[in-house]
Design a protein around this nucleic acid. Structure first.
Lengths: 194, 194
DNA sequence: TCTTGACCTGTCAGTGATGGAAGTTCTAGC
DNA sequence: GCTAGAACTTCCATCACTGACAGGTCAAGA
């Protein structure tokens, strides 16, 4: 449902063709909201039908350039200011974490280690983007806010994965499969959050 | 697509009816993967058709208790160990952040402030769960790992939102609407992450 | 000229997600 | 006996997403 607004938002910056939008998704916006080809073209068609965008030019190779209309801008503004962001949680990795007890400790440990590596790699990718995305326009500036979110969250994820891996190791050593788990050096149940 | 595995995972712990599963989603698992009534019942039907779960008892009021089968367990294990977690980014809030430039600075600022509040509230909710979810079984133990993730990420989100709000204030004060923006005390572009 | 490949737009079938409405059966209280 | 409501399941219309397919046009080089 938000794809519509992603497209509107991009067109609010400047007119573009479906192909152009696809490139923007691939480069920057896709880090935050991904879209496939068919989705973008379908959505452009729908938006044109409802009068929120119009075709402003037809170029070579059948290229159609779309621009946002007043009606589209109004809808975009309404969405930005009046519609609650959708926070439906849907985290594939965490879902698996819930069920890690079904694996052997070694498997579960490997899972968390892979997660740690993935988070670190993702963080690195984003850090590389930082040096590139240095535009002074508003779109770039706000993109950097989103980028910073990514940096912080991937960093937190990395540390969490390392911590969780250790928890699993401890539990395997202390508790085994059965009921209670051996006490001892387990003060550090949950780290302080400030 | 992962709803199937969420259901399988819950049934791997113990047999349950659709209604039971719904309660589990409402209480714990829903923080990580939400599901509606129709989804759960539909999925149970599909799983029964494909032989990954079976009806083990029929109780009062048409209640059907489902249990996972060997085939279901195998699929679950395959998913946990062999299937890459789906990392399709789809973050409604960040999508809006990209387009905050379309709002007046005061509106954008209000948006970020609301985000900060939401993150703080969410963090508090999760912290309240911490004291409750103290079971010693494996499902609870791993649930706490997921919970810890939530605590860390909401904390990071809160701080990020505060930081971003400040960025917006600075930009409005320094740059205004036009081209370049006034230099000065803007060393702190991006905080260190190391 | 012919080929290769980038550019650019679309359609379609299958599948799953969403949200609401509805219906039956049991329990508890009057 | 009657009612209210909780327990529990099922159906349906609509919409979003995926992945594949199916084009047609221009530019540059062999």
């Amino acid at each position: 449902m938000s794809l519509r607004h992603a497209v509107l938002g991009l067109l609010a910056d400047r007119p573009a063709s479906g192909y152009d939008l696809l490139k923007t998704f691939a480069i920057s916006l896709g880090n935050v909201w991904s879209a496939t080809q068919s989705q973008v073209y379908t959505e452009l068609g729908r938006l044109a039908d409802s009068g929120q965008v119009t075709v402003t030019a037809e170029g070579a190779r059948g290229r159609k350039e779309y621009a946002i209309t007043e009606s589209g801008r109004a809808e975009l503004h309404r969405w930005l200011t009046r519609v609650e962001p959708n926070r439906t949680p849907r985290n594939d990795t965490l879902l698996r974490v819930f069920f890690l007890g079904l694996l052997k400790p070694a498997e579960a440990e490997a899972f968390m280690r892979r997660e740690a590596e993935t988070a670190a790699a993702h963080h690195k990718e984003l850090a590389a983007l930082t040096t590139v995305a240095a535009g002074q326009d508003s779109f770039s500036a706000h993109g950097r806010l989103a980028l910073e979110w990514g940096l912080r969250v991937t960093a937190a994820q990395h540390e969490w994965a390392l911590w969780a891996e250790q928890q699993i190791v401890d539990r395997a050593a202390g508790g085994g499969g059965g009921g209670g788990h051996g006490g001892g050096d387990e003060d550090e149940d949950v780290p302080a959050q400030g």
